[in-house]
Amino acid sequence: MSADFILYLIINTLIVVLVSPLFVSLVKKVKAWTQGRRGPSVFQTYFTLIKLLKKEVIYATGSSWVMRITPLVNIGALLVAALFVPLAFVPEPVAGIGNIILFLYLLALAKFFMALAGLDAGSSFGGMGSSREMSISAIIEPTTVIVFAALAFVFKSLNIFDMFATSATSGFLSTPTLILIGISLFIILIVETSRIPVDNPETHLELTMIHEGMILEQSGRNLALMELSAAIKLTLLMALLINLIVPFGLITVLSAAGLVAAIILFLIKGSILSVIIGLFESSMAKMRFFRLPSLFAMAFFFSTLIIIIEVFA
């Protein structure tokens, strides 16, 4: 393992943890603006996390060890997944890090434990949240697999590092199918991070909540870890979209000036994408649960097309 790679591990994790809450607040801010409110400060998520970290944890009576380890498993899985998606600097991949299938399974592991914890406390809302989350996952899973297969097909690699390196060297819109990949990835981002039209991250209304339902029983620093891992997931999927579609600024050779520029560029691109997500969420109403497959079918259609087109041309 080279020094570059160790440096990468530290830098990437630091950026992910520091930047994630910012993007979450930014989306909230944009949604507030479109509703004519001023909205919380863009640093509000940091304050909330710090406050939660200081609070004690209370477990529901009868909850088991699942409840206790879930926040740790979640944050652990997502921090490892964060190593798979280079935000600003793409080193040579080492020891299987960056494998896209492993990346998907790390996300699935976190989701699985979250659903278990939702059931564990024995509250009906948690159970409903878990049940809905698992139903949606079962439907979105084939689409996700096809989208990532299409990615692998276009970039001729299963490794996210290689994909980013290819897209960074070939520049903006090197293959037209990237437009389709962008649309599909965006839909997956919306579904995976529980946003409108699939789920509403702001609601605690028992009829509609999915993600919030599952973490309803978490408290104190455990809740902070769950919130942080949700934010990290958002950042990771955003970074995947950004660095594949608009890769400029991404560096493959480490230098101090390049790194700073790359981080600033990533912040700008991420903020723009957050604004787009905020506007997208504001322009839609939440979909009826049974209409969701039509949204996934769109992503499925485009990613299958990518594969067909890549075979055609």
Partner: peptide, 20 residues
């Protein structure tokens, strides 16, 4: 060729939208 391919992709996107 690259430009025309991008246009093809746009045509497919619009067609998918019209269908759904």
């Amino acid at each position: 060729e690259g430009f025309v391919k991008i246009l093809f992709v746009c045509v497919i996107v619009t067609a998918a939208y019209i269908i759904s």
